[in-house]
Amino acid sequence: MKGLLKGLGVTFKSMTAKKVTTSYPDVPFVMPDRFRGIQHFEPDKCIVCNQCARVCPTECITLTGKANPDPEKKGKVIDTYDINFEICILCDLCTEVCPTEAIVMTNNFELASYSRDELFKDREWLDNNNRNVRQDNNNIGAPAAAKGGAK
């Protein structure tokens, strides 16, 4: 009997303790800055080095580039950039190797959709996904003084 009563004591004590339940989705969930949510892509910064596609463990990034339309500048410009969110595991390796921080994670995690077609995010969508962009990227691929050259 004694053990049961001790247990009940704990139960009653925690009845008066502070509640920790949050009322999501009425109250939006604020994720810490480093949270790995869906990516945000800035086409202007991309130099088509292909590192993100190469490092992706599930090979969900496909990209094509075209020659820079401006005849003065050398290099390539991004043409299409697709991430297949059926298999993206949000592991963050693509942002880690990007030398220009063209692809970064945001803190958005609400990705549910009613059809699988919406899970193929293209360049447009990723460019427009610029709410809650992550600040602290710890981008090992782009040390502070990088001028954008691929390693």
């Binding site: 810490p32 480093r34 602290d136």
Partner: peptide, 27 residues
Amino acid sequence: IDFFNELCGARLTYNYMRVGGVKWDAP
């Protein structure tokens, strides 16, 4: 889990350690 979320950005599948160290320092 919230500690880990702040540290490496994920609640369950951390992808935190790398060969040679860890990915981020503590915030």
